[in-house]
Each structure stands twice: as C-alpha cells, then as structure tokens.
Design a protein around this nucleic acid. Structure first.
Length: 485
RNA sequence: GGUCCCGUCGUCUAACGGUUAGGACAUCAGGUUUUCAUCCUGGCAACAGGGGUUCGACUCCCCUCGGGAUCACCA
C-alpha cells in the first residue's frame, strides 16, 4: 500500500512556523516512503475564509520545498481538493448514514440547543446533546443540521506520537455532520475526504485530540478502516505558554523567506522543535531528515519557539554553502519563491558579479540572514561620509592625540601607495608598518579600517583593502585626513 | 468545572532501572594581529514535589502541584 499523507489547512490566514511543522512532518513521512503528499483546502466555513490565503498557503509550502503531488492548483485523481467543491460527496455519505440509521435531522433551533447547554452548565454537568436526542426526527431536507447518531463506548487506540490513548463513553456525543447551510463540518468532511483520497496517515495538531473518540465512532459507523493517527503537540510562544500566535512573534513563514532565511535552515529548525533522532546531531539537511525522521521520536510535549536558535541555525546553514550557491540565493536567481527581489543594496547594482561574490565571501561568516547584507556590505559599494564618532568613541583610539592619529594615517597612506594591493603584499606592508610605528594592531589596524570603511564593523583589514582596491582605499584615507584637519 | 495530553539546565533536547544526568542555543570568562563575526577553551545552569515498587528510579506505579488542549451549525 502506498503511503499517502496530507496537509489540510483552512484558508483563514497565513501559515506560521507552528502550523507548517505539521505539514513538514506529513511531507517527510510521504517522501521517505516513496508515497504521496496531498494538499487539501478545508474551506467549509465561508465566514472565516480569508481572501488570498489559499494562494498564500501554497506559496509557503513551495517556498520551503514541500512539494505536493495533488492539490487545488494542480489537480489529481481524487479531486477536487477544495472541500467547498466536494459537497456532492458529503451528501452521498450523509445519505448512507441516514439510511443506516446513524444520522438524523436535528429538530431543535440553535437557541433551544443553547438552552440545554446552559442548563447543563448551571447544574455543573457536562453538556451532551445526546441526552436530548429526540425520539421522532423529521426527514432531513437540508435546512436542519444533520447529526451523527453516536454509539458511546470505551476506546483504546494507538497514536503514532502519543502512544496508547484511552477514553470513556462520556466524551462521545451526537455532533453535527452537516450544517444548516449545507456545508459539512470539519469532523465529517475530513473523514469522507481522507477515505476518498485514500489517505493513510492523518497527522495533525493536538487540538483534535479531544475529538478523536468521536471520530473513531464515525469511522466505525461508516465502516471505514481508520488511518494511522498522529497527534502533534503545539508549538508555544516564546514567553507565555499559549499556543503560538502572531503576537508572540510567530511570523508568517514567508516573512522569514523574505528576510533571507534559507528554506533548508527553516526546515531544519522546525523539525528540530519536537523531533530528534536520539543522537547529538543538530544540523540536518533535508536528505538527512528524510533518512532519519520517524513519528515515534516526535516529542509529546509542546516546544517553545526560540528565534535565537533559528538565527544560529540559519547562520550555520549559510556558512555551509559555497560562495557561488550563496550568490545565487542572494541575487534571487535560485530561490523557489516568487519574490525575485535581490538582497543586494541598490548601490551594488552596477558592480560585476565577480566583485559581489568576493564581498559575499568576506561577510559569509557573520551573516545570520540575507536582509543584513546591505548594512554589512554597503561600504564595498559606496563611500560613506566620514563619521568622526567611530574614532572618538573607539575604546583605544579615543586616547590618542589628534596629531598622532593623523600621523599614523599619513604613514599608512605612504605605505599603501607603494602596494600593488594584492592580499599578500598588503599583509606584508601592513605588518611592516606595525613594526615601524611600534603600534599595537588594535590601534593601527582599527584606525585604517575605520578610515577606509567608515563602518563600525568590517571584515579583516587586508582582505577588505584588497577588495576595495587601491584607488578607493587611498581616496577614503584622504577623506578621513581631510575631515580631521 | 468534566475529559484528555504533557512536566530534564532560561530555551530545544539525550537518557530504552545502574551515567560525575550528556549535547546544542542563549549567557559569562579567556584565546586567535584590530572591530563585528567565525573558530577554540572553560564556567554557570535541570530530573516540579511527595509517597511507593526495587539491591538500585530521571526512567515503573500512585497522589499532589504546574502547564496545555478540548467541551461550536470553527477548523
């Protein structure tokens, strides 16, 4: 039997890191077993639907490389893949249930049901609709809700993540199958769809755990084999213990992509929240994840979202790339997402590819995400105005007399004028200057570095100068001297 | 409140009854010819509490406490 997993979000907003983990794990299970991964949109609640979010969801999946074999935009043998287009199916399955005496029209008004609920609450009793199950029900004409006629009993079942689970009959009730607007509820629609789409593994968040016994009851009534069930714990916000939300910094995954986080790093990070292979490995490639992932090693407890860790992980993934790979990603040529934006600053536009690659090589080790590139590299592309603060607030340089600062810069100027600006020559001459001036590198090099970059931080001096070139370096040295006099 | 799930450093986690409770992020202190970063070395830091079972418990059982989920014509 081929493994078929699915991701079935409702198009009610963007996909954040918490939500996408479920998709990732489902994708991993499918891909590692040579199976199929299906995207299905659960859009049965028209009121909550958010315009454009379906496209957004699909783009997010693609951005992370979670490709699906069947879905609303690409079709497939079991379509359509939007629940709103599958109403006919639900009607047929509902009819089967009615014919078998396992579903009935709910004769009460919403207000009446609410009355029962309030009454139960006032008596501190749990509310169960089936305590009010009517004896004679009208024929179902679609204007009333259709309810499941449950068969309350004990259940013991296996969850691929949680292990053995058990509940009593008190949690099973006559829930609504089809709403009075003709749309099915999630509880009914997902089971029908999974059956028709031959889904083998249902991987979803723990908000559905409490409803499992009801689902088990429905599977039986429908005479369906239940799929492998896997419940994922929630990802929690960084501070509170609430389910991760936008407020907690749960950014849209696409925001991370736009900020220049690598899909591989994002996937690695998301997978490592709540899953590990039992070793001390932290960094995984997608392929390694495919080789090693298994549902039974998924954590049962929720994990907190820690952006620091994401930052670190993205940095290590960036460092693992070759400069050429990085260049493709940064320039927007190798990215899967639709935003072809380049992360280079505008000033970099006219510089040749070769130059930009060398710049990238120099900042690679300090890059946490691509959006930092303009700030980190701007001085390679344009002269920054002289910032006297950089010297006056420098912990070593601020102790120097102005004349001494100028003297050192002038000496540096002379030495550099004679250099051919190859890395080796620059290194040699800078070292000679160090001896000649009897200065500590902390002073001499800092000074030259500041003068030639006007930036608070930059790569190693000799390499920076070599890349900047003779003209630019000397010009900036002169600008610094001019500003000092 | 009922039901269910969960509980190891601040955070993510390892541990299949026997370990000085390990790693990583963060943090702190050093080191690498400057800065930021990288890299290296080292430090701080956890079994929620209480009972059992056992020669021996982070591991198994019970209770308490704490956190979460759910009790919709939302998913």
């Amino acid at each position: 039997m081929t493994i078929r997993t699915r991701f079935a979000p409702s198009p009610t907003g963007y996909l954040h890191v918490g939500g996408i983990r479920t998709a990732l794990f489902a994708w991993l299970v499918a891909r590692q077993n040579n199976g199929q991964f299906i995207l299905r949109l659960e859009d049965t609640d028209q009121a909550r639907e958010v315009e454009g979010s379906a496209e957004h969801l699909m783009e997010s999946l693609k951005a992370l490389g979670l490709d699906y074999d069947e879905g609303p935009d690409i079709g497939g043998p079991h379509g359509p893949y939007r629940q709103s287009e599958r109403l006919e199916s639900y009607k047929q399955w509902a009819q089967k249930l009615i014919d078998g005496g396992r579903a009935y029209a709910d004769p009460y008004s919403a207000a009446e049901v609410q009355g029962f609920r309030d009454e139960a609450q006032a008596n501190k009793q749990p509310f169960l609709y089936r305590n009010h199950r009517p004896d004679n029900t009208p024929a179902w004409d679609g204007t009333n809700p259709l309810r499941f006629k449950s068969d309350p009993k004990d259940y013991v079942w296996q969850d691929a993540v949680m292990g053995e689970l058990k509940t009593g009959p008190e949690v099973i009730d006559d829930f609504i199958l089809v709403k009075s607007d003709g749309f099915p509820t999630y509880n009914f629609a997902y089971i029908v769809d999974d059956a028709e789409m031959q889904i083998t593994h249902v991987i979803r968040g723990q908000e559905f755990l409490a409803s499992m016994p009801n689902y088990l009851n429905l599977y039986e009534a429908l005479n369906l084999d239940k799929p492998v069930l896997a419940t994922m714990p929630h990802i929690l916000g960084p501070s509170g213990n609430k389910k991760l939300s936008k407020r907690d910094g749960a950014k849209d995954v696409l925001d991370y992509i736009r900020d220049g986080f690598l899909p591989d790093a994002l996937v690695n990070f998301i997978a490592s929240m709540g899953w590990n292979d039992g070793t001390e490995q932290e960094i995984y490639s997608i392929q390694q994840l495919l080789d090693k992932f298994s549902l039974d090693r998924v954590q049962k407890s929720g994990a907190r979202f820690d952006e620091q860790r994401l930052l670190w992980m993205n940095g290590t993934h960036i460092r693992a790339k070759t400069v050429d790979e990085l260049y493709g990603l940064v320039s927007g040529e190798q990215r899967a997402v639709s935003n072809e934006q380049s992360f280079w600053s505008q000033e970099a536009a006219d510089y040749p590819e070769d130059y930009k690659k060398r710049v990238l090589g120099l900042v690679q080790e300090r890059l946490k995400y691509f959006a930092e590139i303009p700030e980190l590299t701007i001085f390679f592309f344009k002269d920054l105005p002289v910032n006297s603060e950089l010297i006056s607030s420098h912990k070593q340089l601020k102790k120097l007399e102005l004349t001494e600062v100028k003297n050192l810069l002038e000496q540096a100027q002379k030495v550099l004028e004679q250099s051919d600006f190859s890395l080796q020559d620059l290194t040699d001459r800078l070292n000679q200057l160090l001896e000649k001036t009897a200065q500590k590198p902390a002073i001499l090099f800092s000074l030259v570095r500041i003068a030639t970059t006007q930036a608070p931080a930059s790569p190693a001096l000799a390499e920076t100068l070599a890349l900047l070139g003779k003209d630019v370096s000397l010009r900036r040295l002169q600008q610094q001297l001019d500003a000092l006099s």
